[in-house]
Computed example of a mutant assay.
Amino acid sequence: MSKWDAVAPGVIADYRAGLTWAEISRKHGIPQGSIAALLERHGAAPPPSLPVAEEEIVQLYVGERVPIRALAERFRISINTIRAALRRAGVQPRPPGPPLRKDRR
C-alpha cells in the first residue's frame, strides 16, 4: 500500500474529469511521477504519453508557429512533453519571445 492510496479516489475522479497531471499533483499534493502508478494500481489506465501525434505538434510549431506554451495548453500536456516531442522529431526550439512591456500587459 502506498502513502498516496488515500487520495486515489479524488485523483481518479480528477483524471477522468480531464485535469492535467500538473493540476492533479497540485490539488492532491502527489508527485506527478506517482500519478500513473497510482492510477494503474487502482484500475484506472494512465493516459497515453501523447494525446496527439508528434507530427501534428511539429506541424503546428514549425508550420503555423504556435508557441510551445499554447500547444501545451491546447493538448493539456506539459511544456516539457511538447519540448521532448519536438526534440525527438529533430526540431530546434525557437528562442523565447520578448518579455511583455508593462504597458502592454
Rank of each mutant, 00 (worst) to 15 (best):
A6I: 13
A8N: 09
G10Y: 10
G10D: 12
G10M: 06
I12Y: 05
Y15F: 11
Y15I: 01
R16V: 02
R16F: 03
A22R: 07
I24T: 05
I24L: 02
S25M: 04
S25L: 06
K27Q: 15
K27N: 06
G29Q: 00
G29P: 00
I30P: 00
I30D: 00
G33K: 09
S34H: 05
S34C: 07
A36I: 01
A36C: 10
L38T: 08
E40M: 06
H42D: 09
A44K: 12
A44T: 14
A45E: 11
A45L: 10
A45S: 08
A45H: 04
A45M: 04
P46K: 01
P46M: 04
P47K: 15
S49G: 12
P51Y: 07
V52A: 09
V52R: 08
A53G: 09
E54K: 06
E54N: 07
E56K: 01
I57F: 05
I57D: 03
I57A: 02
L60S: 02
E64R: 11
E64H: 09
E64Q: 15
R65I: 06
R65Q: 15
I68L: 08
R69S: 12
A70Q: 14
A70N: 11
E73M: 06
E73K: 11
R74F: 01
F75Y: 15
R76G: 00
R76A: 09
I77T: 07
S78M: 00
I79C: 02
N80K: 15
R83E: 04
R83T: 09
A85Q: 01
L86R: 00
L86I: 01
R88C: 05
A89Q: 09
A89V: 06
A89Y: 11
G90F: 03
P93V: 04
P95E: 14
P96Y: 11
G97E: 15
P98Q: 10
P98R: 14
P99G: 05
L100V: 13
R101T: 08
R101D: 07
K102M: 12
D103F: 12
